[in-house]
Computed example of a mutant assay.
Amino acid sequence: MCVPCARISVRACPRLREGHVAALVGRARVWGVAGTVHHPATLEPVTAFLEEVSHDHPAIRWTVAHRQVLALHDCTPVDLRDLPA
């Protein structure tokens, strides 16, 4: 997210105004998905909550993804007020 949009998000969101952490990220690697894993034989959901499944895990074939999961590397915590726009 760009710095101006991050600042707008903090101003607009009551939860972020209560507290947040900002970081500059050197690398972001797609790791997998969070989703509903289904049994391969019955196609019934295995769990009632979102399960994180890596792209190389066999269960990925039976997972309905709800969101992508990233691994963040080389992170540096920052204060948004100290960053140029």
Rank of each mutant, 00 (worst) to 15 (best):
R7G: 04
T76R: 15
C13K: 02
V25N: 04
W31Q: 10
A65H: 03
P4G: 05
P58D: 12
P58L: 04
G35D: 03
C2A: 13
R11L: 10
G19W: 00
S54G: 05
R67Q: 13
A85N: 13
E44M: 08
V10M: 06
H20G: 04
R11W: 03
P84C: 05
I60N: 01
L80G: 11
L80T: 12
V10I: 13
D74N: 11
T36P: 00
W31G: 00
V10W: 01
H20M: 07
S54D: 05
M1I: 08
W31M: 09
L16M: 11
P45Y: 04
L50D: 09
C2M: 06
A85L: 14
V53G: 00
V46K: 01
A71W: 11
R27F: 03
A59L: 08
E18R: 14
A48E: 15
P40Y: 10
R81F: 09
M1W: 07
W62Y: 15
V33M: 01
T63F: 01
A65D: 03
A28P: 03
H66I: 01
A12K: 14
V37I: 04
R15F: 11
H38W: 01
V78I: 13
T47D: 07
L70W: 15
E52F: 02
A28D: 11
A41L: 11
A85Q: 12
G35P: 00
G19F: 07
G26P: 01
V3L: 08
L72R: 04
E44N: 11
H20E: 04
L16S: 00
V64M: 09
L24C: 09
V25T: 09
A71R: 15
T36C: 02
R27V: 07
G32K: 00
W62L: 02
A28M: 15
F49S: 12
S54E: 12
V25P: 03
P77H: 02
V46L: 05
M1R: 09
R7Y: 05
F49E: 14
V21M: 11
H57N: 11
R17L: 09
W31F: 14
L83E: 12
W31T: 03
D56G: 03
C2P: 08
A71K: 14
V30C: 05
V78T: 07
T76M: 11
V53A: 01
E51Q: 14
D82S: 14
A12I: 05
R15K: 13
V64A: 10
T76S: 12
T76L: 15
P58T: 02
V37G: 00
R81E: 15
L70Y: 15
V10F: 09
G32F: 01
L50E: 11
S9H: 04
H20F: 15
W31A: 06
L83D: 08
L70Q: 11
G32V: 02
V69W: 01
A59K: 05
V30F: 08
P84A: 12
L24M: 12
A34S: 15
C5I: 03
E51S: 14
P14K: 09
V21F: 07
E52H: 06
E44D: 13
A22Q: 04
P14I: 01
V10E: 01
C2D: 14
V69I: 15
T76W: 10
T42Y: 10
C2S: 15
P58E: 10
L16V: 02
A65Q: 03
